[in-house]
Amino acid sequence: MENFVFAYPTKNYFGKEAAKQALNAELPKYGKNVLLAYGGGSIKRNGIYDEVMALLQEQGKEVTEFQGIMSNPTYAKVQEGAKLCRDHKIDFILAVGGGSVSDCCKAVSAQAKLTSDLYDYEYQEKKIPQDGIPMGVIVTAAGTGSEQNAGAVITYEEKNWKGALWGTPASFAVLDPYYTKTVPQKQVLSGAFDTLSHCMETYLGTPRQPNLSDRMNEAVMRSVIENTRKVAKDPEDMNARSELFWAAAMAENGILKIGKVTDFQAHMIEHQLGAFTNCNHGCGLAAIQPALYRHLAPAARKQYARLARNVFDVNGEEADDETTLEIALKGIEKLAAFIREIGLPTTLTELLGEVDDAMLRQVADTAVITKGCAKQLTPDEIYAILQEAK
């Protein structure tokens, strides 16, 4: 296990009607000017907006609304939110929605306190913001675990770039499983697959021998698969929704990453695919991951075979390298079968319709190559993987 320092800043309020408990306990700690951030307006249709506004008004808060945050939040939207914060002297940001809203607000929080451009500050000056406007998150869609950390995935349209910016982690998060009933079933299932992907990409990093973090991760992955199947069959299964909500938090609160250098090569490829196509994130991962793992498994066959046996219930003894790889590949086929079972796309053609090879070449040429990956891929190999995923 690698050396580590672990601290966990986010306080989680979990369960039915957790928003009232959280806001009554947390809002008095902050000033009166609140930025209420949300997406396309679904929270107004499903009643969450009225509930949250009533709680803010009870606390005597002055509310500035920041709406229209898109599913792949843009850098321009971050700048819009930061300007609102400066113009209205915002003391606290309350993000209500899924990972996109949370991601956007974490970046807004940091940008609002910086005098320089956030992207240049992080990628040119190589600095991480140490100050930001305090924020909290009310999560309505499980999957990303964005509310548990400081990372924000942002699309910089002018640069054809989608990647991580670092902002302010939420001081608290509201995880009410009943709120997940307000989002479409496809989003629930793609979010669940995003959770599974986070877990796999942590598990398949280094070190590659068995360790405590990975053994905990195996339990989380099995739970995600089991409860995704339950929700796919019965969207009213609140126990399964609760399990998926907490699994999403566990995948990204840092616990499963302790002592690990993570993989996340699939995410890096999908981010660039999203930068060029604006595709659904979980669906993009589903289309890419099996093809990617077939390329990576030979370089870490024992690790992939352990995933196959302990998570996907593949039987077999590792008598030699050949049989170990055979077990690993069977696990990848079970992953692909699970993706088909829950109705997510298994190819890029299913995801996008017509696929432009020139665009795939650009995705391959601009994707970040990760250090924790079993094999250091080249742009040419990423392009070959994307061709196989078509």
Rank of each mutant, 00 (worst) to 15 (best):
P210A: 14
Y49A: 14
D321P: 07
E236I: 07
R309E: 02
N3H: 13
A319F: 09
K159C: 03
S242D: 05
S109G: 11
T144D: 00
L175K: 09
Q376A: 06
T140H: 09
S42F: 07
V231S: 13
M221P: 03
E350K: 15
T347K: 06
D194K: 02
M70C: 13
H88D: 05
C279N: 02
G274P: 01
N310A: 10
A164L: 10
H88K: 15
N239R: 11
G68R: 14
T144M: 02
P28N: 07
Y383E: 02
A82M: 09
N33C: 05
L196A: 10
K127S: 01
K162I: 08
T144P: 02
Q387P: 03
L36D: 05
G145N: 00
F66V: 11
D87V: 09
A251L: 01
Q265Y: 04
C199Q: 13
T140W: 05
T206C: 09
A297R: 14
I154A: 02
E125H: 09
G39C: 15
W246K: 13
T323P: 01
G47H: 08
A297Q: 03
T74C: 02
I69E: 10
V314Y: 07
G41P: 11
T64M: 05
D91T: 08
Q130T: 15
L329R: 15
K106M: 01
Y75E: 03
L27Q: 08
T182P: 12
P235Y: 10
I255Y: 05
Y119S: 00
S223E: 06
L56Q: 11
Q272P: 04
P345H: 06
N3K: 13
K334N: 14
L377P: 04
E2P: 01
A141Y: 07
M70S: 15
M135L: 14
K375H: 13
A291G: 01
T10K: 01
Q376L: 09
R229I: 04
F245N: 00
I382L: 09
Y293F: 15
K61W: 13
T10A: 07
K127G: 00
L307P: 07
L204I: 05
T277E: 05
K302D: 09
A37P: 11
L273C: 04
K260H: 05
N46V: 15
A164C: 00
D131C: 12
G316M: 02
D237R: 05
D91C: 10
D194L: 06
D214G: 11
T168V: 10
R294M: 08
L377Y: 04
S109V: 03
L23M: 10
D237N: 15
N33I: 00
M1N: 06
I133L: 07
T182R: 14
S71Y: 08
E125C: 01
L27V: 10
V139W: 03
G99M: 03
A7Y: 00
L36H: 12
P184M: 08
R241G: 08
M250I: 01
A37T: 08
A37K: 02
K257Y: 02
I128Q: 03
G60Y: 10
F193N: 09
T115K: 14
F312E: 02
N33D: 06
A374D: 04
A37R: 04
A319S: 15
F276P: 01
K32H: 08
I93W: 04
E157Y: 04
A266Q: 01
A19Q: 11
P210I: 13
R208T: 14
K20F: 04
K77G: 12
E2G: 03
M221E: 11
A37N: 06
